[in-house]
Design a protein around this nucleic acid. Structure first.
Length: 570
RNA sequence: CGGGGUGUAGCGCAGCUUGGUAGCGCGCAGCGUUCGGGACGCUGAGGUCCCGGGUUCGAGUCCCGGCACCCCGACCA
């Protein structure tokens, strides 16, 4: 490919909207360009990277026996209505109608439709296990697209679906996908770790996310310093780090104390000279239906909304209003669990000690409040874990909070969809049984930008060879020198006959511009054919990932380059 | 959806306070000199100043309304 003809120019300065390093480099190196908020066009260089990433995923899916197919982007409403997701996905999906008024959704995911096909194609247990996948665009009307390709409104996902006869089969399929994911991400140069995750809109119980730890990520991940425990914050738990021994017997009954104007934990800490953990924090919240619930936590803990939503089975948790307070018998600023007339959830981090809690009377708190003696509630895990908490798995290591980009996820949802859709097969015993399934997604564009986020230096991208848009970048210096141009073009031609992917910088630009652009584009091997090098009848070879270079005789340069390219991982 | 910010040439920005013929750098085109780390000179092209309404003799600038984009949060895979 002649760089002078390349559709896509490099930029010396990044557009102002670009925030993360990868986003800036993606725009400067002409990988992809925005069309509207959260909608991106792949330019030719980026398109090649996307296709290479897809090919790696494809090979690993094929290796575990998944079969590639393709389902449409536009999907009919009736099927979504069978599983209830037509309504539940309403806020974040794009919808349209055909000329007859029939409703469609731009596919958000394809569980419903792959089940529809499975019902027709998989009639007998003999045909399972079965796995299919496709690369297809997904539409998601994100409230806030951000950071280039990291969160967009339309993107290509590899989504795979497994169908098994029972739970044991599903576990095998799940493990196979897990392995394929590890291989896929490693091959594309991503250091992805698996973490336990919430199942969100997909339903089911078991789920893992594959996260690449980087500061630009928007997910928060708890990672143990000692063992392999890692979990998304919306799922992470911790080991109790203090003795929860019941001490109620030695503690006096609650007594009132005056705390005028102290309506927050901070004010109580200051006025009573006690640490935050000596207090009980009581939150009065209401769910999407307006049902009110109280959540009791130690004063030094925050509630995790994702956990709470899951516990309550609701899509939304808001603070209660004045009427809710009145109905529950609480006073804002002085609310406490004792005597509260509302469903009460007590977080697992509340232990047996004597706490100071709101008295549900203005300017009054209670001291010596003990859980399960002075108040009772359902025990739940609804708190945010934080840096330094004890690992729930090994009990020795401490948890660190890191940021990550979710590049893939796998869900074992079981019969969640087949039950709702009555999707069954004929089992060995002659009865009809529901498919036991899982779904497995990878965001291709997000993976590409994450590769850039984690493979660059101050000059530009440093592509892992396996996904680089081209393998070799040949620079002619200067291109209007007849001898230089002739030698460079001969070399390019020879490399291309060896099936090496070459970008040839034939632009009439200065050396500085060409070297700077080569660094920016990040093609793994740079080959300079110049007037200077020609005096020694040599070409200079330099790896983008290294600062060293070597001179090789021109007549054996193609051979040497082919060796280097052949040595790269595939 | 809440909070904040920004819309002026392909990109980065100034001009707006105090209304009076739209600028700078990079990039782009032509010519010449250069040619191993973002060269130099000369000439030139390129703008519905986000959109609509208003005030005014006159609006990029002031007022009203809208839209778009970015950031933080909420939400979300």
């Amino acid at each position: 490919m002649r760089q002078s003809k390349l559709f896509g120019r490099t930029l010396r300065e990044a557009p102002a909207e670009a925030q993360t390093p990868g986003h800036r480099l993606m725009l400067r190196a002409a990988i992809a360009k925005p069309l509207a908020a959260g909608l991106y066009t792949w330019l030719p260089l980026g398109f090649r990277v996307q296709k290479k990433v897809e090919q790696i995923i494809r090979e690993e899916q094929d290796r575990i026996g998944a079969q590639e197919m393709e389902m449409p982007v536009l999907t009919p409403a009736e099927t979504w209505k069978q599983t209830g997701r037509w309504d539940s996905l309403e806020p974040i999906t794009f919808r349209t109608k055909d000329h007859n008024g029939r409703e469609f959704m731009v596919s958000y995911t394809h569980e419903e439709f792959v089940h529809l096909h499975a019902m027709q194609e998989l009639q007998s247990y003999r045909q399972m296990p079965a796995m299919v996948y496709h690369f297809q665009s997904k539409g998601r009307d994100e409230a806030r697209p951000r950071a280039g390709l990291l969160r967009v409104r339309e993107f290509v996902m590899k989504d795979a679906y497994s169908f098994d006869v029972d739970q044991a089969g599903l576990e095998k399929s799940y493990a196979a996908q897990f392995g394929a994911y590890e291989k896929s991400f490693a091959r594309m140069g991503l250091d992805a770790i698996s973490v336990e995750s919430d199942t969100g809109a997909m339903g089911g119980d078991v789920a893992h996310e594959f996260q690449v730890l980087t500061e630009v990520g928007e997910d928060r991940i708890a990672v143990c310093t000692n063992c392999d425990y890692r979990a998304n914050m919306e799922k992470a738990t911790r080991s109790a780090d203090r003795d929860g021994a019941q001490v109620a017997g030695k503690v006096a009954a609650p007594s009132e104390m005056r705390t005028p104007g102290a309506t927050s934990i901070e004010e109580l800490e200051a006025s009573l000279k006690q640490p935050a953990e000596a207090f009980l924090k009581t939150l009065l919240l209401r769910d999407a239906k307006g049902t009110v619930v109280a959540v009791v936590l130690p004063g030094d803990r925050e509630v995790n909304e994702a956990k709470l939503r899951k516990i309550l089975g609701t899509s939304e948790v808001k603070f209660a209003n004045d009427a809710d307070f009145a109905a529950a018998g609480g006073v804002p600023g002085f609310i406490g669990p004792v005597g509260l007339k509302v469903r009460t959830l007590v977080d697992s981090s509340v232990d047996g000690r004597a706490y100071i809690a709101g008295a549900n009377k203005k300017d009054l708190h209670l001291r010596d409040v003990v859980n399960d003696r002075d108040f009772k509630g359902e025990r739940v895990d609804a708190h945010d874990i934080r840096e330094g908490d004890l690992c729930p798995k090994c009990g020795k290591g401490h948890l660190q909070i890191k940021r990550g980009v979710e590049v893939g996820n796998i869900f074992a949802y079981g019969t969640y969809y087949s039950d709702k859709m009555n999707a069954t097969f004929l089992a060995e015993d002659g009865t009809r049984k529901p498919f036991v399934g899982g779904s497995y997604g990878i965001g291709v564009g997000r993976a590409v930008q994450t590769i850039i986020e984690t493979h660059h230096d101050d000059k530009g991208i440093v592509w892992p060879p396996q996904v680089a848009p081209y393998e070799v970048h040949v620079l002619a210096l200067p291109v209007n020198d007849d001898a230089v141009r002739a030698k460079a073009e001969a070399l390019v031609a020879e490399l291309e006959t060896r099936d090496i992917e070459v970008l040839y910088d034939d632009r009439d630009e200065s050396a500085g511009v060409k070297f700077a652009d080569a660094d920016l584009l990040g093609i793994p091997l740079r080959v300079t054919v110049s007037k200077r090098n020609l005096k020694e009848n040599a070409a200079e070879l330099k790896l983008r990932s290294s600062s060293d270079s070597q001179m090789v005789p021109l007549d054996t340069a193609a051979e040497r380059i082919a060796e280097i390219v052949a040595s790269w991982p595939r």
